[in-house]
Design a protein around this nucleic acid. Structure first.
Length: 191
DNA sequence: AGAGCGATGGCCT
DNA sequence: GGCCATCGCTCTA
């Protein structure tokens, strides 16, 4: 299991290194797992970031300790799941944008009301539904106690396996290359 | 395959 | 009151 130290580093580095790691979620007696295949970095000095204008009721978790969750509500019906990075007081986080389902796929299919495995977690809103992540999961420390954590994975990615691109769904600072995904992976939200 | 658009509610100015 | 770190449906091809 990744410790807080993994997340207490530069946000861009964490965003890249989260690719290929495994998100684990315990839901009662069900265990859900999925490979993180797409991420975005949000820094403090970054007009697209919720932390850009300082601490607000919504953005407070981003300024908290690394290795905690930041889950926010958007578009009136969806949630987005982030992991907080860098030292306390710095407003940084990594948005998990897409996941390749590994375990607990039937549960995800029920939660999503969708059969196609490719469609279960291929977007930030989708994966929150598939992993039952919501407001209740905001500002929690990643770990077994809170039934959300991230594991190391055997297969190591090389730099050439990672594609760097611009972020999706933003208008401010849209040119910054802060989005990362696993090359040729079938479960990313878009190219 | 891709563009257009409505749903829906909390946050921020 | 306007704006969203979105999604899924519909329409056109």
């Amino acid at each position: 299991m990744l410790s807080a130290e993994f997340f207490n580093r530069k946000t861009l580095k964490v965003a890249k290194e989260l690719l290929g790691k495994v998100l684990v979620r315990k839901l009662g007696n069900k265990l859900l797992k999925g490979l993180i295949v797409e991420t975005e970095a949000y820094l403090q000095d970054d007009p697209a970031s919720h932390s850009y204008r300082g601490q607000t009721p919504r953005s407070i978790p981003m300024f908290g300790p690394a290795g905690h969750t930041y889950v926010y509500f958007t578009y009136g019906m969806y949630h987005c799941f982030n992991v907080v990075t860098e030292k306390e007081g710095y407003g940084g986080a990594v948005l998990v944008r897409a996941i390749e389902p590994i375990k607990g796929i039937e549960t995800m299919q029920k939660l999503r009301n969708k059969e196609n495995i490719r469609d279960l977690c291929s977007g930030p809103g989708k994966l929150c539904i598939a992993f039952d992540l919501g407001k209740k999961d905001n500002q929690l420390k990643l770990g077994k106690k809170n039934c959300i954590y991230i594991e190391e994975n055997h297969t190591k990615l090389k730099m050439k396996d990672i594609v760097t691109a611009t972020r999706i769904g933003i208008t401010d600072a849209a040119h910054l290359p802060y989005r990362f995904y696993i090359k040729e992976n079938k479960f990313i939200s878009r190219k």
